[in-house]
Amino acid sequence: MGPLIVNDIISPDTNLLMAFIIGIGFGWVLESSGFSSSKKLAGLFYGYDTVVLKVFFTAGLTAMIGLLFMSLFGWIDLDLVYINPTYLTSAVVGGLIMGLGFIMGGFCPGTSMCAAAIGKIDAMVFIGGLFLGVLIFTEGYPLIEKMYMANFKGYPRLSEVFNISDGLMALLFIVMALAAFWLAERFEKKTPAPEY
């Protein structure tokens, strides 16, 4: 609940409570739309089910449009919105490791929790691996710190990189997303889901 907590409208404790409630809602929606099945995430990789791409891209679009309009109406100060700092090397290395983990396990951290909650053993193993990874990262941090902090690029935004207005970037992004959805669905029709 970004701006609320920064402006001391709600306390950090209330923030945690709200996160808990929103988290339950998120988990419920994930499970009821079938994301707790590892076939969904694997489907994106093999091309027979691109719903993950569509859902997360649509979520991004909704948030982007919402933020831009709220900023336009003066409801939110975009300067207060957290932007992940970009460390290029660790982004590339971490992305590869995460991607490999996703496709090997068939879950992302969120969906693995969902699947574990409905009793899937593979998801529990996945969570075990997740904690193992956390442990290795934490204990091995001094070894990788140099690489972890390498290539710091500040807090770049696409609109700043291309030197165009936020709105135009948003429109381009929407067009790109719709094109990606269309291509994904065409691809999906051509690739039959494997029989398990």
């Binding site: 207005s165 936020d166 709105g167 948003a170």
Partner: peptide, 12 residues
């Protein structure tokens, strides 16, 4: 989505 994008792009 497209029309919302057009609106936001048209506004400076």
């Amino acid at each position: 989505f497209l029309s919302l994008g057009l609106i936001i792009a048209a506004i400076p």
